[in-house]
Simulated scan of single mutants.
Amino acid sequence: MTVYDRYRTLLHKLALVRARAPGGDSPEADALLDTMDEVWDALSDGERAAMERERDRLALSVDTRAVPA
């Protein structure tokens, strides 16, 4: 697994954890964020730029699903 893929996997896990416990931090989310910080440092500048777009897209899709119809 590449560093980029590892970060992307962690990002998706974080979205799932936050969806289960909206509005509050959890030990699981804190642990994921700590790991994500370490992996982020290993990404290249290009990978970071691509991941920022992925984070924005994922945040939008999570927010869209959270809005009541």
Rank of each mutant, 00 (worst) to 15 (best):
L10V: 00
A21S: 07
A31K: 04
D25W: 07
L33T: 06
D63E: 14
S26D: 12
Y4H: 09
E38C: 00
G46K: 12
A50L: 08
S26N: 03
S61D: 15
A19F: 09
K13Y: 00
V3K: 05
R48C: 00
E47N: 09
V17N: 12
L58G: 08
R8C: 00
T35S: 10
Y7V: 02
R6M: 05
S61E: 15
S44I: 12
D30R: 08
R20Y: 13
H12N: 13
L16W: 11
E54N: 09
T2W: 02
A29M: 11
R48H: 03
H12T: 11
V3P: 02
A19H: 13
A66V: 00
V67S: 08
R18N: 14
A21W: 09
T35I: 05
L43F: 05
L10M: 03
L11K: 03
T35W: 07
V17I: 04
R8D: 09
M51W: 14
D30N: 10
E47D: 10
L16G: 10
L58D: 09
T35R: 04
A42R: 11
L33N: 08
T9A: 11
E52K: 02
D56P: 07
E38D: 15
D37A: 04
A31T: 00
L14R: 01
R53N: 07
M36I: 02
R65K: 15
A66L: 08
G23M: 03
R20C: 03
V17C: 02
Y7Q: 10
G23A: 11
P22E: 15
D56C: 06
K13F: 05
D37T: 01
A42G: 12
A49R: 12
V39W: 02
A69K: 13
D25T: 07
G46T: 10
L32Q: 07
R65N: 11
A42T: 08
E52R: 08
L10N: 04
Y7N: 04
R57P: 00
A50W: 00
R8W: 01
P68D: 14
L32A: 05
D41M: 04
R53C: 07
D41G: 08
M51C: 10
D41L: 14
T64Y: 05
V62M: 11
D30P: 02
V62H: 02
G24W: 12
R53P: 06
D37E: 14
M36S: 03
D5A: 15
A66Y: 08
H12A: 10
R8A: 03
A50V: 01
P68N: 11
A31R: 00
Y7H: 15
D45P: 01
D25N: 10
S61H: 14
A69D: 15
L43K: 07
R55C: 06
A49L: 06
A49Q: 13
R55V: 03
A19D: 15
L43D: 14
L58V: 03
D25I: 09
R18S: 11
V67F: 07
L16T: 06
H12P: 09
L10P: 01
V3Y: 08
R48E: 07
W40L: 01
R20E: 12
Y4F: 10
D34R: 09
Y7A: 06
P68I: 05
E47K: 04
E54T: 12
M36T: 02
L43S: 09
S26K: 06
R20F: 09
E52F: 01
V39R: 01
P27A: 05
T64E: 15
E47A: 06
L60N: 13
D34N: 06
A31W: 00
D5F: 01
T35G: 01
Y4A: 10
A15F: 00
S26V: 05
T35A: 10
